[in-house]
Amino acid sequence: MSRKRRSAADEPFIDLRSSMGDVGGGERIVDHRHDWHQLIAVSAGLMTVTTEVGAWTAPPHWAVWVPAQIRHSIRFIAPSRFTALYIRPESTPALPDRCTALAVSPLLAALIGRVAAIGMVDRRDATESALATLIATELRTLSVAPFTLPHPTSEAMRHAVELIADQDANRNGLASDLPSPNLATIARKVGLGLRTLERRFARETGLTIGQWRRHRLLLIGLETLAAGAPVKAAAAAAGYAGPSAFVAAFRQSFGITPGRYFGGE
């Protein structure tokens, strides 16, 4: 099916438009925003969308939803293929008002493919209007994937997560799985007591420091797999002494073993 030609006179009636891309690993789209909502669906590779309040990762058969006017950047961890849908906000009310990662159902994947094939959706066409209605219905009912890493909002807590990341990057070997960060040292460096640090971190992110760190490291492991590394290397990158503990933790957090994301099973 060829993409339909549209003129300037058609623009007020266009409710959805689409674009597709193949990008190399390591490529980035710098911070920007759109007047329309955006759904970025990944069919190959791995992508992370980042805003001021968090980061959302999408492996194959998953997507990231970005509401209109939200500033965001995109990083492609591995060579990736994606399709982006842009949805006119005023034409489709009651869609999610926050960024999220979503599982792409077979129905939504087919709908995305159809819109990509015709290029745009014109509400004057009954069939095309039905496509827009079905897509909106799917977006309101899809399950949210646990690929969100919330960012703290205050300067002190953002400094704390930088220090946690530095401790993880500089650890010398792994005597045991996920050795604990030195929270007393981190609290002192950000000018807070340990209990105050823990309370503020939980209030700003919705997670304890341990939960946040574990989730961050699991996502690093996912990125390592997307780059083509074996599970053993991904486990080490995620802070686990061996693959079995990493796979078990990954499955507990994400509901599936890590390798299945890239096998399309």
Rank of each mutant, 00 (worst) to 15 (best):
I77C: 00
A248Y: 08
A237W: 08
R199A: 08
V66M: 10
P150N: 07
L95P: 00
N172H: 13
R195F: 13
A235H: 04
V64S: 02
L95A: 00
A238E: 07
L178K: 01
L194D: 03
L107D: 13
G264P: 04
P96T: 09
I74Y: 05
L149H: 11
I164H: 00
T148N: 12
L95W: 14
L111C: 11
V23E: 00
G242W: 02
R81F: 04
V64D: 10
F82H: 01
T257M: 03
T57P: 15
A241N: 08
A241C: 07
P79I: 02
G54W: 11
D35Y: 14
A9K: 06
L142I: 12
D10T: 02
E223G: 15
A44K: 02
G263L: 05
P181H: 00
V64K: 00
G193N: 11
E128N: 06
L178I: 04
A165R: 14
N170T: 09
S7Y: 04
P230M: 04
T224R: 07
F262P: 01
H159G: 15
A156F: 05
A248E: 14
L218R: 00
D35T: 14
I186M: 01
V30D: 15
G173Y: 10
R75L: 14
M120V: 11
A44G: 06
P89E: 01
D97A: 14
I209P: 11
F250A: 07
A84F: 01
R28W: 13
F254K: 03
V115Q: 03
L111T: 02
A126C: 04
P60W: 01
D15E: 12
P67I: 03
E162V: 14
I256V: 09
L134F: 13
W56I: 07
H151M: 12
V190F: 08
G263E: 14
T83A: 05
P93S: 00
F82V: 06
D22F: 11
G25E: 07
R213T: 15
E27Q: 09
A241Y: 03
N170A: 09
Y240F: 14
V161N: 04
P60T: 07
A169W: 05
T148Y: 06
D168Y: 12
P181S: 00
M20S: 14
R88V: 08
S7G: 08
A110G: 09
L194N: 01
R140D: 04
A109M: 09
A44H: 10
